[in-house]
Structures are given as C-alpha cells and as structure tokens.
Write a protein that binds this DNA or RNA. Sequence first.
DNA 1: GCCGTTTTCGGCCCGACTGTTTTCAGTCG
Length: 629
Amino acid sequence: MPPAADAPTEADSQAPALSEQITRAPDDPPFEERPRASRGDDVPLLGNDELARILYEIGDMLEIGGEVPFKIGAYRRAADTIAHSPVDIAAAYREGAVPRLAGVGKAIDEKLAELADTGRLRYYERLRQDVPPSVVTLLAVPGLGPRTAGELWRQANISSLDELEAAASQGLLRTLRGMSAKTEQRLLEALSNLRKRPPKRLRLGIAADAVKRVTRSLTSERGVRAVIPAGSWRRRRETIADIDILVESDDPAAVIERLHGMPWVERAGSLGPRTGGATRTTVQMMHGPQIDLMTMPAGAAGTYLVHFTGSAEHNVRLREMARDKGWSLSEHGFTSLTDPPDKRTFATEEEVYGFLGLPFIDPALREDRGEIEAALAGRLPTLVSRDDLQGDCHTHSDWSDGHYTIERMAEEARRRGLRYQVLTDHSGSLSIARGLTPARVDEQRRVVGDLNEALAKEGTDFRLLHGCEMEITPDGRLDYDDKLLARYDVVIASLHVGRRQPRAQLMARYRVALRNKNVDIIAHPSGRKIGIRDDLDLDWDAFYREAAETRTVLEVNGSDERLDLDDRRARAALDAGNRFTIDSDAHYLGEFDNLDWGVAQARRAWLESRNVLNTLPLEEFLAAVTDHA
DNA sequence: GCCGTTTTCGGCCCGACTGTTTTCAGTCG
C-alpha cells in the first residue's frame, strides 16, 4: 500500500501501524459531502478486488484509446492502493468513513462513491461502449501492448484473440503500419504459447528448487564472481512468476553463452543486442519456470541488486528520493542532474541506501508499505528469522494423515535444531484425515510420554508436546469436550469443512473456538490454498479483535500452498495486537522446510521475534501460549 | 488524474531490448 504523507513521527513504536497510514488526518478536510445512500443497501457490496479490477480496466481502456499517460497511470495507482488496502473500501464509502487513499483524488473518489452506492459506474460503462472489452483481452498476448492493440482495433477492426489469430495466419496484419510478416509470426507464436501455457505462478518450494539449480550451475562457471537470486524470490513473495538471477562477472557474454548451453534449458530467449556486449538474457527451464538473467559489472552490484530485487513500487520511491536529492537512479548507479553529470556506483546495497540517507531495508519489506517512512524515522523492525524459532506448533504423524511415525517426525524436528515440537494430529470428526477418537487420544498421549522419557534418558533436552488440530464442526461445536481438551499441552483449532457457509455463520464458529479457554492457537485462519481454494469469507477486523481480546494465538502456516495468515493479514493482525506462531504443518519429514516459508511471510508482515511465541524457550512458550481468557 | 511548506500549475521513475523507424516507438520489468 502506498504510504500516507503524514506518517507518524514519534519514535514510540517500531513501525507506523497500517491503520495509522491510511486514516485521514483529523485536520485533513473531507472531500465535499456526497449523498450517502440508503439506496445502496440493496446493492451488493463490491470487494476491493472488484473495485481495483474496474480501475485497472479503465486504465487499459484509456491507454488503448490513446489517453495521456499520466491519466492512465493515475487510475492504475489508485487501483493498486485499493487492491492492497486492508480496509473494505466500498463498505467504508457506504458508512461515510473513507480512509485516506494514496492516489485517489476528487475524480476517482467520486467514481468510488458511485460504485459503492450503486454497484455501477457510468463512466466505466461509457468507456466500454467506446472500447469493447474484448479488445482489452488482446493485452494478454506477450509483446502486444496497448498501443498496438488500439491500432489493431482501429485499423483492422480486430477485437478478440480469435480475430487476431485469424488475421495473423491469413497474413493480413503485414499491411498495417509497423507490422511485418515477422511480427505476424511472433504474434502467432505468442498466441499459441498463451493457449498452451497460461501464465502460472510458482509456489515457493518449487521456485526454491529452480533457484538452487540455476545458482549451482552458474557459480561453478569461470569468471563468475557471484550469483545472486533477486526479484520477487528474494523478497519471498508468496508466489513467483519468473526467476531473476544476477551474475557479477567480468565477461557477461561468456556467462550468457554458458547459460544457453545448460542441459536443463529448454529454450533460450533473446541473445541481446546484435552489436556490443549482451548483458541480459532469458531462458525457459525444462519443466520449470522462466529464468531472467542479468549480468552486472564487478564492484558495482549495489544498484543492480536494489533495482532487480524491487518491488517496482519500492524502486519508484527510491528514484523519487534520488531525484529530490539531484540524482537520477537506475540499475547502473546514480547520475547527477548537473552539467556535466557526475556518476556514482556502489558495491553494496547498504551503500546505495546510505547514499539516499536510509538504513539498509530488508528485501522482505521492499513493497512500499511504509518501510521508507519507517527507515527515515529509524523504526525499521528487527525481523524474526528462522534461527529464532525454537519449536514447531503444528505437525502430524501417521496416527492421522501424516506419513511418518511420531518417533521419526520428532527425530527430524530435533535434527533440524528445534527444541520442541507439538504433535497435532486431527480430531475425531475429520474422518477423511483419520481423526483420532478419544480412546486413541489417550493412547497417543502415552506414546508421547514414553518418547519423552526415552529422550530424557538419552540426556537430550528436546521435548515432544502433545497437542491436537481440533476441528470446528459445521454446526459450531468442538470435536472434544473441555475435559479432554484440558489434558493436552497445546490445542490448535481449525476449520476444514462447511467452508462455504455465510460470513456470520463462519464467524460464529470461529468465536466458539476463540472463546474456549482450552483453545490456544487458530491454525491457517483463512483456510485458503493458493490457486486451489479461496479464502473463507470472514469479517477479518472482528476476527483479529476477538483473537486479541481472548489472547488466542494466530498461526502463520508455512505450508507453501497455504501461507496463512498471509503477509498482509498477519500485518493487520499485528497492528490489532495479536500474537503469533510460525508453523510447518508438516505431514512429511521434508515439510519441516515449511518453517522457512512461514518465517518469510512473517518477515513480510513486519513480525519480530517478540511477536512470535515459538521463538521462546519451552517453559516460557507453554506459559505464554496457554495464557488466555 | 494526482499532488504539493522550497509548487494550486507543471511536473509526474528509468533503461534494455526489439523491430524496422534510417532516428524511434512500443513493450517490458
């Protein structure tokens, strides 16, 4: 979310709370009064995603229509703000309590009000009459941008992917200005790729494998001084589109040639300019993602790293700061705006940030969500790290739907340096996951007890805790009675069935768990699986509030297909005063890796170790996690 | 279209690569 201009300045807390960044300052005059409509009450409320999509589409249509770039950019900036806002924007408009939204001025404000009140936007509908929506779909073709889409539509009346394909294969496009037979071929290829392989984002675990392979291959090459994965992978976004690799080398052309020759390369992209030395290239990995490789001159890596790590929004802020100081910033370095221009390059990112008057900002924070303001105020968080974790509070065994014995999982947890592990097999009603009956629970407790005894005899201080992942049933009950629940060391509650219930019902179910004194942690609160299952429809603010009030801990589930809470929600929950655990939800030995992904999302949410209970030593952890109303 | 105590008007982030333009526009990240 783009930050507000009036970030707090008192050095009383680590970071400006998200709510502070978006709340209109008291002396900031409201936009002129607009009628607040009860007429809106029977109109379905548009979500932030829908509002943002409409604004993005307005941007696309304006661009196809040849509108001035800054107007187009204004709609997209406003769309970004809304897409990233933790506040339910349409609801806020209806209630007349509109937060300050960066990039939303008078004109877009009025359009948002109309959308909130009526669910429609006349301006948008007019535009759609001028520019058919199907023309916008042409933009999905890689290499085909808005200008060309507009020309195709105006000159050749092409307004859909099918029409584009037909025209290109009949050789009709080459008659248009700026088009050739080669362009037609390129478009046909792009269309075919688009149909074959819709752009798919990688889960972190899969991206990690690809990163490892590329890095290992290139590191051993001659003349390579460093190989550094950058881009959204380095920021550990929850999914990765393609993998950006930076290589520090004195001989970029040789590096590129070597990459093209790797056995795992399915298709090599551009070879760079025909004259002069190529500095970057793209390859398609066999059964894997696209790799974008950029080379950088030795000793000047700082600005390259910053530039190619991003995010784009963060970089924009840095370049604006540079310009305010009289410098232009690009990947190559700083160029002064004086005549003659002066040039500065730096070996490290620390020096680049330092030149702008900023402390080093961790890649996990580089999203323009207040990190620049926090850095300027000296209030960047000290982010939690994997080494801080002493325990894992969510793991399974073959007693329910895990795939390894209790003993084997515990051994693996210990091998990975954990001091304690909570075994949390599923409760009875989740029969698909072979949930435990009360009798089996007692039996399992004895097994855990025996194992701990054996570990103590060996003199190890690792401890296995007995817990369960307790199902919150569709009719709002907990699987086990309080007497049984009270005997567990730790109880985590979650919800796997009846996911489509209306919001009020889902909230009521969660409330049962939050208000039960035996429930310590809510596991994967949103219930999503990335790209597979949508989020539960919850009143999130109320959820965070009640969890904070009852001191029920919220999980950051590290499974790379869950990452739940996600970074934004965990940040909002942090601002609401919540406490967290970061867990693997391991069903296999290898899934203890999930702790890495969980920590990564927690860092993106600005969490510090003091916010995460399983960074505490065992006794303190147990005292803290069970300390609730 | 948005924004601002060095501006209510005049700015708005930057460069590589591609294709076909013989000097640059479009696309992408």
